[in-house]
Simulated assay, not measured.
Amino acid sequence: MMMERFSSFTTFYPYYLNEHRHPTCRRLHFIGSTLVLLAVLCAVCTGNMGWLMWAPVMGYGFAWLGHFGFEKNRPATFRFPLYSLMGDWVMYWQMLTGRIPF
């Protein structure tokens, strides 16, 4: 099976959105990303960098629950880690601003 290649994030993002069609999967991504931001904020505000260890646990934990439990697909981050990370934050912003429904 030929693996898809993307020449830019712009060509990757439609694929990324297609992998996140289930509303619960998108919601879980949103929750996980919000918890990542809160962990970073706690680390900055308290000076306790131990909060940062929770950021990937929260971010990936909620996202993978969405993929394996609801979307029934393999997270794109396994094949396209940088583009997927970028896609997470673009999708997060678009959900926050109402461009993508929860």
Rank of each mutant, 00 (worst) to 15 (best):
A39S: 10
Y92F: 05
G47F: 00
I31L: 07
T24K: 13
G87D: 00
T46S: 08
G61R: 09
F80R: 11
V57M: 14
M58S: 15
M95F: 03
F30R: 00
A39E: 05
S84W: 09
M95S: 04
T34G: 02
T77F: 13
L28P: 06
D88K: 11
M53D: 05
W93Y: 13
L82V: 10
L35Y: 05
G59D: 02
G69K: 09
M86N: 03
V57A: 11
N48T: 08
G66A: 07
G69E: 12
T24I: 15
G59S: 00
C45I: 09
W64C: 12
L35N: 05
G47M: 02
G47Y: 02
A63V: 01
A63L: 08
M86G: 06
G87R: 02
P81S: 08
W51L: 00
T97H: 13
G98A: 01
G98T: 01
Q94T: 00
V40H: 05
A39V: 04
Y83E: 07
F62K: 10
G61A: 10
I31E: 00
G87E: 01
A39Y: 13
N48I: 05
A43Y: 02
Y60S: 14
V90Q: 06
V36D: 03
F68V: 11
V90K: 02
M91P: 03
W54A: 13
M58F: 15
Y60A: 10
V90R: 14
